[in-house]
Nucleic acid binder design. Structure first.
Length: 429
RNA sequence: GGAGGGGUUCCCGAGUGGCCAAAGGGAUCAGACUGUAAAUCUGACGCGCAAGCUUCGGUGGUUCAAAUCCACCCCCCUCCA
């Protein structure tokens, strides 16, 4: 690995607009040049799977590794027990320790998937901060670590200020201590593995700088920090959520098809940035895509490329193939052309499927499939012409009728559609 | 422990005895226009085909009638100790 590559990581991140804040500035750039450095990013187990909000830092670790550095993915088995209060407007309820532990175990392989653990001096590491926090003696911790923190400066941090200053919500001592734990992680990773850089979302700035301070005080060593920008959407809505909720990385929770569709539906104004943030395409190529889309009067290419790249990254070529098969079948084809095999494959590929009988009324199919929340809503949808079965728009008259048997594709399947892009398979049995 | 302020439909937030399934905003859904985009416009948004039924932290009470009044309880916030 050449020197220039290792140093170029910062320029690459800059060109992708991935740098929000840097602790160390020019010094960090020099530090990264010419040697394989160790950096880390933490991921708390707050659910049974990571979600696309975690994708940006995860991919960044990979970018650093590709540039010749050594990434450490940290699972917050300990910090997950406490809960990060940063920019959260309310105290969160504690989950049982066993739950957190289970989540941590499920998250590990998701982290591992993006990193290379067999790469000589740059080989990635997967650690759990529970390993050095669990047996920690309270008195020792307060004396050796706590003494380095000033509550005065802790309450100044922007990340917790709203919880302390404003009316409405307070902050427990538990959550307030989170910063100390995360700081200790950084210092400990420096001691154990020579880690000199922590990266994270910009909401982590306060925790990262606190860790830099602690490492200096504890080990008299200069370490660095770098944060990524908060991902925003052009319309101001929250990134990473859809009607159906969070976009997870676990294919059992968000199918590759749903994942693909999420990206495919990115707004024009966001697509370019998302390509920079979430793919490894060269920056010049991304610029070219943007230029072409801006000039062309027809449908843009960016979203399709974005969806293919990200889906392949997270779900592999097989997942991508499945996602594209479903997309092809539903959006560009004539469903009548689908073979029995195709339909079976759609079900296997993860298109949601519900079993129905020859007696189930359309309204009930809509409710059972989750396409409508209640029969009353289902009725409304049908009345407004939002529901189609095998490409045939249904009218109110059909609501209480079962799906006509002669309409079943290959005697077995119906493709139920609500609105423009919500599809569901109904299987006759 | 003391004093004060609160808990309303997914969220924010009005409502202080009937006109309340409950204002307004947001989110969401659908339709129109499009390109599976954005913006815009229209409609829906507790459950029910309907009659009607079930909601306003919990329980019990007052009343012809309660989200609104009373009692007790639970939870949250602020300040003091």
């Amino acid at each position: 690995m050449s020197t220039s590559t290792q140093a170029a990581i910062i320029a690459d991140l800059e060109s992708r607009r991935l740098i929000a804040q840097v602790a160390g500035g020019e010094e960090l750039r020099r530090h990264l040049a010419g040697a394989c450095r160790t950096l880390y990013c933490g991921f708390d187990p707050t659910a049974e799977s990571l979600h696309i909000g975690n994708l940006l830092p995860l991919l960044a670790l990979r970018r650093f590794q590709l540039a010749g550095h050594r990434p450490i993915a940290l699972v917050g088995g300990a910090t997950g027990l406490i809960g990060d209060p940063s920019f959260k407007d309310a105290e969160r309820k504690l989950n049982p320790a066993a739950t957190i532990e289970g989540w941590a175990e499920r998250i590990k392989p998701q982290l591992a998937r993006f990193l290379d653990f067999d790469r000589g001096e740059g080989a990635a590491l997967l650690v759990n901060n529970l390993d050095w926090t669990q047996g920690c003696d309270v008195l020792d911790f307060l004396r050796d670590v706590g003494k380095h923190f000033s509550v005065n400066s802790m309450i100044q941090k922007e990340s917790v200020r709203q919880r302390i200053g404003r009316e409405g919500e307070g902050i427990s001592y538990t959550e307030f201590s989170y910063m100390i734990l995360q700081s200790f992680d950084f210092a400990e990773l420096h001691r154990r593995h020579g880690c000199t850089l922590q990266v994270g979302g910009s909401d982590q700035w306060g925790n990262i700088t606190a860790g830099i301070d602690l490492t200096r005080r504890l080990h008299r060593q200069q370490v660095y920090g770098l944060t990524f920008p908060l991902i925003t959407k052009s319309d101001g809505s929250k990134f990473g959520k859809t009607e159906s909720g969070t976009i997870w990385l676990d294919p059992a929770k968000t199918s590759p098809y749903a994942f693909y569709q999420f990206w495919r539906n990115a707004a024009d104004a966001d697509a370019g940035n998302f390509l920079r943030y979430f793919t490894f395409l060269p920056i010049a190529e991304i610029g070219e895509i943007e230029r072409a889309d801006a000039e062309s009067q027809s449908r843009p290419q960016a979203q399709g490329i974005l969806a293919r790249e990200t889906t392949a990254l997270v779900h592999g070529e097989q997942g991508l193939a499945a996602a594209r098969r479903i997309t092809e079948a539903l959006f560009s084809g004539n469903v009548a052309d689908l073979t029995a095999e195709d339909l079976r494959q759609l079900e296997l590929d993860g298109l949601p499927c519900t079993a129905v009988t020859a007696q189930t009324a359309l309204l009930d199919v809509l409710v059972e499939s989750g396409l409508a929340r209640s029969r009353r809503i289902a009725r409304e949808l049908v009345a407004s012409g939002a529901v189609s079965v095998n490409d045939q728009t249904q009218s109110s008259a059909n609501g209480d009728e079962p799906l006509p048997p002669d309409l079943a594709l290959h005697r077995d399947y119906y493709i139920i559609r609500r609105g423009k892009k919500n599809f569901h398979l109904a299987k006759l049995n």
